[in-house]
Protein backbone atom coordinates (compact mmCIF):
# COMPACT_ATOMS: atom_id res chain seq x y z
CA UNK A 1 0.00 0.00 0.00
CA UNK A 2 1.37 3.35 -1.03
CA UNK A 3 2.39 5.56 1.79
CA UNK A 4 0.22 8.63 2.11
CA UNK A 5 1.97 11.80 3.01
CA UNK A 6 0.30 14.68 4.64
CA UNK A 7 1.17 17.83 2.82
CA UNK A 8 3.39 19.75 5.20
CA UNK A 9 1.45 22.93 5.71
CA UNK A 10 3.50 26.04 6.26
CA UNK A 11 2.94 27.80 9.51
CA UNK A 12 1.11 31.06 9.68
CA UNK A 13 2.27 33.82 11.96
CA UNK A 14 0.25 36.61 13.51
CA UNK A 15 0.63 39.28 16.15
CA UNK A 16 -1.84 39.49 18.99
CA UNK A 17 -2.06 41.44 22.19
CA UNK A 18 -2.94 38.67 24.61
CA UNK A 19 -4.04 39.83 28.04
CA UNK A 20 -2.15 43.05 27.49
CA UNK A 21 1.06 41.43 26.26
CA UNK A 22 2.17 41.77 22.64
CA UNK A 23 2.58 38.23 21.34
CA UNK A 24 3.81 36.66 18.13
CA UNK A 25 2.55 33.20 17.43
CA UNK A 26 3.11 30.71 14.61
CA UNK A 27 0.64 27.91 13.98
CA UNK A 28 -0.90 25.71 11.32
CA UNK A 29 -3.14 28.06 9.38
CA UNK A 30 -6.32 26.02 9.76
CA UNK A 31 -6.34 26.47 13.53
CA UNK A 32 -9.04 28.29 15.39
CA UNK A 33 -8.32 30.98 17.92
CA UNK A 34 -9.37 28.47 20.58
CA UNK A 35 -6.75 25.98 19.44
CA UNK A 36 -4.02 28.59 19.18
CA UNK A 37 -4.77 29.89 22.67
CA UNK A 38 -4.81 26.43 24.22
CA UNK A 39 -2.21 24.60 22.21
CA UNK A 40 0.24 27.23 21.02
CA UNK A 41 0.02 29.83 23.77
CA UNK A 42 -0.60 27.48 26.70
CA UNK A 43 -3.67 29.41 27.83
CA UNK A 44 -5.82 26.45 28.80
CA UNK A 45 -8.19 28.57 30.86
CA UNK A 46 -10.25 28.92 27.69
CA UNK A 47 -12.32 25.74 27.40
CA UNK A 48 -14.13 23.98 24.61
CA UNK A 49 -17.58 22.51 24.98
CA UNK A 50 -18.68 21.71 21.46
CA UNK A 51 -16.34 23.41 18.97
CA UNK A 52 -19.40 24.22 16.92
CA UNK A 53 -20.44 27.53 18.42
CA UNK A 54 -23.31 26.07 20.41
CA UNK A 55 -22.38 26.43 24.06
CA UNK A 56 -20.43 29.64 24.68
CA UNK A 57 -17.82 27.88 26.78
CA UNK A 58 -14.89 29.05 24.62
CA UNK A 59 -15.82 32.73 24.77
CA UNK A 60 -12.95 35.24 24.84
CA UNK A 61 -12.94 38.97 24.33
CA UNK A 62 -11.62 40.12 20.98
CA UNK A 63 -11.04 43.86 21.00
CA UNK A 64 -13.33 43.92 24.01
CA UNK A 65 -16.21 42.04 22.36
CA UNK A 66 -17.19 38.47 23.29
CA UNK A 67 -16.48 36.02 20.50
CA UNK A 68 -16.67 32.25 20.30
CA UNK A 69 -13.02 31.34 19.89
CA UNK A 70 -13.97 27.93 18.46
CA UNK A 71 -15.48 29.67 15.45
CA UNK A 72 -12.83 32.36 15.01
CA UNK A 73 -10.03 31.51 12.63
CA UNK A 74 -6.83 32.58 14.35
CA UNK A 75 -5.52 34.00 11.09
CA UNK A 76 -8.40 36.47 11.09
CA UNK A 77 -7.35 37.80 14.48
CA UNK A 78 -4.05 39.33 13.43
CA UNK A 79 -3.38 42.58 15.23
CA UNK A 80 -6.27 42.23 17.64
CA UNK A 81 -6.49 42.35 21.43
CA UNK A 82 -7.47 39.08 23.02
CA UNK A 83 -8.54 38.78 26.62
CA UNK A 84 -8.86 35.40 28.27
CA UNK A 85 -9.76 34.41 31.81
CA UNK A 86 -6.07 34.40 32.68
CA UNK A 87 -6.01 38.15 32.05
CA UNK A 88 -8.89 39.13 34.30
CA UNK A 89 -7.08 39.43 37.62
CA UNK A 90 -4.67 42.31 38.17
CA UNK A 91 -1.67 40.51 39.53
CA UNK A 92 -2.94 38.60 42.53
CA UNK A 93 -6.00 40.82 42.86
CA UNK A 94 -9.09 39.19 41.46
CA UNK A 95 -11.53 41.05 39.24
CA UNK A 96 -14.73 41.85 41.18
CA UNK A 97 -16.58 39.32 39.04
CA UNK A 98 -14.07 36.64 39.98
CA UNK A 99 -14.56 37.51 43.65
CA UNK A 100 -18.31 37.28 43.49
CA UNK A 101 -18.32 34.15 41.32
CA UNK A 102 -16.08 32.51 43.94
CA UNK A 103 -18.09 33.67 46.95
CA UNK A 104 -21.57 32.96 45.64
CA UNK A 105 -20.86 29.53 44.20
CA UNK A 106 -21.40 30.81 40.67
CA UNK A 107 -18.60 28.45 39.66
CA UNK A 108 -19.35 24.84 40.46
CA UNK A 109 -17.44 22.54 38.14
CA UNK A 110 -15.84 25.69 36.75
CA UNK A 111 -15.72 24.53 33.17
CA UNK A 112 -18.11 27.10 31.72
CA UNK A 113 -16.92 29.76 34.17
CA UNK A 114 -14.26 31.49 32.02
CA UNK A 115 -16.80 32.06 29.26
CA UNK A 116 -19.40 33.43 31.65
CA UNK A 117 -16.86 35.71 33.34
CA UNK A 118 -15.76 37.24 30.08
CA UNK A 119 -19.28 37.77 28.74
CA UNK A 120 -20.22 39.35 32.07
CA UNK A 121 -17.14 41.58 32.00
CA UNK A 122 -18.02 42.81 28.52
CA UNK A 123 -21.59 43.41 29.66
CA UNK A 124 -20.53 45.49 32.66
CA UNK A 125 -18.13 47.52 30.57
CA UNK A 126 -20.99 48.44 28.27
CA UNK A 127 -23.74 48.61 30.87
CA UNK A 128 -22.44 49.09 34.42
CA UNK A 129 -25.84 48.56 36.09
CA UNK A 130 -27.68 45.92 34.09
CA UNK A 131 -31.10 44.70 35.10
CA UNK A 132 -31.68 40.99 35.74
CA UNK A 133 -33.28 40.70 32.31
CA UNK A 134 -30.35 42.38 30.62
CA UNK A 135 -28.01 39.96 32.38
CA UNK A 136 -30.10 37.00 31.21
CA UNK A 137 -30.06 38.30 27.66
CA UNK A 138 -26.31 38.86 27.70
CA UNK A 139 -25.60 35.38 29.08
CA UNK A 140 -28.17 33.54 26.96
CA UNK A 141 -25.49 32.18 24.61
CA UNK A 142 -23.58 30.45 27.39
CA UNK A 143 -24.67 27.11 28.78
CA UNK A 144 -24.04 26.05 32.36
CA UNK A 145 -25.23 22.63 33.51
CA UNK A 146 -24.35 22.99 37.20
CA UNK A 147 -25.75 26.17 38.65
CA UNK A 148 -29.09 26.80 37.03
CA UNK A 149 -27.64 30.28 36.32
CA UNK A 150 -29.14 31.88 39.41
CA UNK A 151 -25.92 32.26 41.35
CA UNK A 152 -24.30 33.59 38.19
CA UNK A 153 -26.90 36.38 37.91
CA UNK A 154 -26.43 37.25 41.55
CA UNK A 155 -22.66 37.26 41.20
CA UNK A 156 -22.89 39.63 38.24
CA UNK A 157 -25.26 41.90 40.13
CA UNK A 158 -23.08 41.97 43.22
CA UNK A 159 -19.94 42.67 41.20
CA UNK A 160 -21.76 45.40 39.29
CA UNK A 161 -22.78 47.06 42.54
CA UNK A 162 -19.25 46.88 43.90
CA UNK A 163 -17.77 48.22 40.68
CA UNK A 164 -20.17 51.15 41.07
CA UNK A 165 -18.52 51.82 44.40
CA UNK A 166 -21.20 50.37 46.63
CA UNK A 167 -20.29 48.47 49.77
CA UNK A 168 -22.47 45.64 48.64
CA UNK A 169 -22.62 42.23 50.30
CA UNK A 170 -24.32 39.03 49.25
CA UNK A 171 -27.87 38.70 50.49
CA UNK A 172 -28.47 36.38 53.41
CA UNK A 173 -30.95 34.43 51.29
CA UNK A 174 -28.42 33.97 48.50
CA UNK A 175 -25.98 32.24 50.83
CA UNK A 176 -28.32 30.52 53.25
CA UNK A 177 -31.62 30.14 51.46
CA UNK A 178 -34.82 30.55 53.40
CA UNK A 179 -35.49 28.57 56.50
Amino acid sequence: MASRRRKPAGKAQISLVVNGEPTEVAFSPHKTLLEVLREDLGLTGTKHGCELGECGTCTVLLDGQPVLSCLALALACDGKRVETVEGMARGAVLHPLQETFADLGAAQCGYCTPGFLLVAKALLEENPSPTRDQIKQALAGNLCRCTGYLKIYEAVELAAARMQGEEAEAKEETLYGRR
Binding site: L43, L94, D103, A107, G110, P114
Partner: peptide, 10 residues
Protein backbone atom coordinates in the same frame (compact mmCIF):
# COMPACT_ATOMS: atom_id res chain seq x y z
CA UNK B 1 -15.02 26.49 48.06
CA UNK B 2 -11.38 25.54 48.36
CA UNK B 3 -11.01 25.38 44.59
CA UNK B 4 -13.06 28.50 43.84
CA UNK B 5 -10.14 30.79 43.08
CA UNK B 6 -8.54 28.24 40.75
CA UNK B 7 -11.83 27.93 38.93
CA UNK B 8 -12.46 31.64 38.44
CA UNK B 9 -8.92 32.25 37.26
CA UNK B 10 -8.79 29.38 34.78
Amino acid sequence: KVDAVAKVTG
